[in-house]
Write a protein that binds this DNA or RNA. Sequence first.
DNA 1: AACTCGGGGCA
DNA 2: TGCCCAGAGTT
Length: 222
Amino acid sequence: MLTKAQWKVCRDEIADMYPDAHCELVHDNPFELLVATMLSAQCTDALVNRVTKDLFKKYKRPEDYLAVPLEEVQNDIRSIGLFRNKAKNIRAMSEILLEKYGGIVPDDRDTLTTLPGVGRKTANVVVSVAYGVPAFAVDTHVERVSKRLGINRWKDSPMEVEQKLMRWTPEEEWSQTHHQLIFFGRYFCKAKTPECGICPILNMCREGRKRMGLNKKDEEME
DNA sequence: AACTCGGGGCA
DNA sequence: TGCCCAGAGTT
């Protein structure tokens, strides 16, 4: 397993690789951020950005999604997949926002996760990016990188991954580190074809060493 | 824990 | 062609 000190070194190396890592989703408008994050489930960020570019010109406020038939919203996001459920959730979420929260996106995770289509990951992204609440949103990239490095075990739940990363990372670095891990996972430590051969932290990476056939005497941690 | 939603990108 | 993708809800 990785040590906390080694994790510090890894964070610094990854920060060096992606010094300008930032949230590619909308960050200045909580409602648009919430919609964009809901759309991003099981879908590449490039595809979401392509759709939201037109979507946010047409739909500015919660009322706008309720002013047109469900089928129209579905059609407007058709190209990202899972569009039936996502459109339904966005309209249901908008309605609750108007009825219970005055059209304002709540700033705490527990309230957000009560909204239809908003789970733990989406809620974390919204509170941290839109409201500056310290959070370590564990998405597929963060989870994969964490487990490959050996911060977590392969069998750990997303909750356990999140807790460990928060304990091992200074709170003021949670958001920044999260986005740098996203970039690192998306463009370098890729799910199918990780760039282990030119990785600056290969010597500390459990999975990377295994992939490169470098595990001396095999310290299998499982 | 396993299953479903889903069109587009990429090998 | 087949597999995967900034997840969440249901069973």
